[in-house]
Design a protein around this nucleic acid. Structure first.
Length: 427
RNA sequence: GGAGAGAUGGCUGAGUGGUCGAAAGCGCUCCCCUGCUAAGGGAGUAAGGGUUAAAAGCCCUUCGAGGGUUCGAAUCCCUCUCUCUCCGCCA
C-alpha cells in the first residue's frame, strides 16, 4: 500500500510514477472521495465529541442525585445523526481503502521504463554457456529417456502442469534444496523456518496477492477460506505482521523451503511442456526485514546470496533489472536472475529478488521502534528466490548433460547424493 | 468430534456499566543519590487516525473481530476467529 498521506498530498506525482507501469490511477476521482471523507470525518468526530461530553455530564449529574431527564432529552436526536454519519464515513473509508489496496507500489527511480520483459536491462553476467560437442537436449527429453521424469503419469493423476519424478532425479531436487538451505543458513546468516502451506486471506492481503490476484491462487475451502501458498514469501513475510521489532532486532533474515502452488491463470499456452511452469513446484525463499534506510543495500546483498547458489553449482547466469512494464505489483525494485538453459538456448528466470520497501509492511503493520524517536515506524521487507528448486533441477540437467544422455552431478551436490557422480538410466 | 476456560498496552497482569486509555509489576528513557561492572529514590513511557505546511495543542478511534443494548460498554447480550485444558480420534 502506498502511504495514504502521500496519495493526498501528491496524487499527481503518484499517478505519474504508476503510469510508467502502465497503471492508470485516477487521481481526481480519488481526491474527490478524499475531500468528502475529510468533511464527513470532521463532522462525525465532532458529533462523537458531543456525545462523549454529554454522557460524562449525565454520569456526573446522576452521581449527584440530580434529575437527568432534561439532559437525556437534550441528546435525544444525537444518536441518530451520529449513526448516520458513522455509517457514511465507514463506507467512504472502505471505498478509499479498496482503491488503495488496488494500487501497485511506487517504483524506485532507477527502474528503467519499458513495456515487457524484452525491455529488462542486463546488469551483469556470470559464467559461460557450456560448449557441447553434441546437440543439447532439453530437460524433458533427458528426464524421460532416463525414465526419471514422467509427465504422462502426472497428467493421468492431476492433469497438465505437473510432474512425477523418480530415482536419482527426485533425489537431485532434494539435494538441491538441502544444499541451498545449508548455504543460506551457514554462510549468509539466514534462520531456517518451517511454515504453513495453507494461509488465510489476511496473510495474502499482507503480502499483496489479495484482493487483486485472487484468480492466481488456489483456494481450497470456502469456510474457512484457506489458500495454498503461491510462495513461501506469504507465510514467512507475515511473521512480521503486527509486530513491533526492537530497534536492535533488525535485520531479520529467514529462509524457507516450501512447495509453491500457482493456478497460472492467464499463462495459457506459455511453457506448457516440461517443468518450467507448473502448478506445484519447490522453492527455497529468502526473506528479510530491515530498517527503512537499509533496504536498497539489502536488495543487493540478497540478490548476491541467490547468485552464490548458482556460482557454487557452476551454472551460468545473468542478472537483469526488471523494467517498469515487467516489475511485480508490490515491488519498488526487482532483480531477476536468469540461468542459462542449453535446451532452450537462452536464459530463463530462476530467481526474482525484490525490495518492497514499506508496501507490504503497511498492509500488515510490520514496524520497528525507531531508536532515535522511540516511535514505531514501518519496516521494509524484501524477498527473493534462493533459488527455485524445480528450475535449478532443469538447469543442472541441461548444463551437466553428456552425450549419452547421462547427467553429471555438480561437485557441491555429490555429498548430498551419497557420493554419486553421474545420474544415468540405471536409476 | 465432545466438554470447559480464556483473548486487556513492548511484555506479565488487575479491572463486571460513568470517576478507565485503563492499577501494579517488568522493560525502556531521563534525573537524583551513591563512587563503582551492585543497590536505592524520583519522573516519564500504548497504538492508529483527524485537524495543521509542519509542530504544539485540541479532537476521534482502539481492551481478539463484527453486530446489539444504553445518554454512556474493557465491563451486559449475540455471532465469529484464535489460544489453552480435558476426553475421543489420529500421522
Amino acid at each position: 500500500m502506498i502511504d495514504p498521506k502521500l496519495l493526498r498530498q501528491s496524487a499527481a506525482d503518484v499517478a505519474a510514477n504508476l503510469a510508467r507501469r502502465g497503471f492508470e490511477f485516477d487521481a481526481d476521482a480519488y481526491l474527490e472521495l478524499e475531500e468528502r471523507r475529510k468533511a464527513l470525518q470532521v463532522e462525525t468526530e465532532q458529533l462523537q465529541s458531543e456525545r462523549n461530553a454529554s454522557a460524562k455530564h449525565i454520569g456526573k449529574a446522576k452521581a449527584r442525585g440530580e434529575d437527568i431527564e432534561p439532559l437525556l432529552a437534550a441528546v435525544k436526536d444525537l444518536g441518530d445523526r451520529l449513526e448516520a454519519g458513522e455509517k457514511a464515513l465507514q463506507e467512504l473509508q472502505g471505498q478509499l481503502r479498496d482503491i488503495e489496496l488496488g494500487l501497485p507500489n511506487l517504483m524506485s527511480e532507477d527502474v528503467p521504463t519499458g513495456d515487457s520483459e524484452d525491455d529488462n536491462t542486463e546488469v551483469r553476467k556470470w559464467g559461460e554457456p557450456p560448449q557441447l560437442d553434441f546437440a543439447a537436449r532439453d530437460h524433458i527429453e533427458l528426464g524421460e529417456s532416463l525414465g526419471q521424469l514422467d509427465f504422462d503419469a502426472a497428467s493421468k493423476i492431476s492433469g497438465a502442469r505437473f510432474v512425477v519424478m523418480k530415482g536419482q532425479l527426485a533425489r537431485l531436487q532434494r539435494a538441491l534444496i538441502q544444499f541451498m538451505l545449508d548455504t543460506h543458513t551457514s554462510e549468509h546468516g539466514y534462520t531456517e523456518t518451517y511454515v504453513p502451506y495453507l494461509v488465510k486471506p489476511p496473510a495474502l492481503i499482507g503480502t499483496g496477492q489479495l484482493p487483486k490476484f485472487e484468480e492466481d491462487q488456489f483456494r481450497t475451502t470456502d469456510e474457512p477460506p484457506f489458500y495454498l501458498i503461491p510462495t513461501a514469501e506469504v507465510p514467512v513475510t507475515n511473521l512480521a505482521s503486527d509486530v513491533i521489532f526492537d530497534a536492535d532486532a533488525l535485520p531479520v533474515r529467514y529462509v524457507a523451503h516450501t512447495p509453491c502452488f500457482r493456478s497460472e491463470a492467464g499463462s495459457h499456452g506459455q511453457d506448457t511442456r516440461g517443468m518450467i511452469r507448473q502448478h506445484q513446484f519447490e522453492k527455497v525463499e529468502l526473506v528479510q526485514f530491515v530498517a527503512p534506510d537499509a533496504s536498497m543495500d539489502a536488495l543487493e546483498e540478497l540478490t548476491g546470496h541467490a547468485e552464490v547458489v548458482l556460482q557454487k553449482l557452476e551454472l551460468p547466469y545473468r542478472v537483469v533489472i526488471l523494467c517498469s512494464g515487467d516489475i511485480g505489483f508490490g515491488s519498488t525494485k526487482t532483480y531477476d536472475i536468469e540461468v542459462w538453459l542449453p535446451g532452450q538456448n537462452r536464459y530463463r528466470e530462476i530467481s526474482s529478488c525484490s525490495n518492497y520497501n514499506d508496501f507490504q509492511a503497511r498492509r500488515m503493520k510490520a514496524r520497528r521502534r525507531n531508536p532515535e524517536t522511540g516511535k514505531p515506524e514501518l519496516i521494509h521487507t524484501l524477498n527473493g528466490s534462493g533459488v527455485a528448486a524445480g528450475r535449478a533441477l532443469i538447469a543442472v540437467m541441461e548444463n551437466y548433460q553428456q552425450e549419452d544422455g547421462s547427467i553429471r552431478v555438480p561437485a557441491v551436490l555429490q555429498a548430498y547424493m551419497g557420493g554419486l557422480e553421474v545420474i544415468d538410466a540405471s536409476g
